[in-house]
Amino acid sequence: MSAAPLDSKQEILERIRKAVDSVGNRAAEYAAIPREYRREGAMAAEAKMELFAARLYDYGTSVYRCTTAQIADAVAQALSARRRTGIVVAHGVPASWLPENFEFVEDDGLSYTALDASNGVLTGCELAVAFTGTIILRHGPGQPRRAVTLVPDYHLCVVRAQQVAETLPEAIRRVEEFRSTPLTTISGPSATSDIEMTRVKGVHGPRTLDVVLVS
């Protein structure tokens, strides 16, 4: 191919300009796009939490509901239930969440092999969506690295009531300011239906996801 990259770009843009009549005010046109779908939730706080918890149960996630003061106890309960004596702690997790008598390893740039060999990871989250049972993780400075939430086989995530939005549009609006940082959304554990449409839970990501839901 003799053409320089710039030529390809120009040619593609030229083809587009020839193909479409893109006159008209783009911003005004965009603003006029109909958006009649549900953009605001209508649920009371407790109903919203119930729905979120129900969705998580539906995905096979264990949910530990507690108050702020009880987070460390709930973490201990979850770890014990999964027979974990220790776990990796991602960036952004406050010390107050960590119960005594467990071994916690700070993520100070652990290697992939170390993460792979670990017993799991404890993280917070940025937001959650009740209607779809979704957890949104934000990465970047002061936040859990993507690898830390992915390579370990067990993910314990703390979600606080004020982080739970009812609908996806509400969550998207709340997380919009972070649109340039990496985001991961998690709706239940990894899954595949590639073999005879039999749903197998847990493929490459953490095969078990538990949630501490703080009211």
Partner: peptide
């Protein structure tokens, strides 16, 4: 309802 994972970067 939502596919298990979305990555945005």
């Amino acid at each position: 309802r939502m596919n298990p994972y979305n990555s945005i970067w």
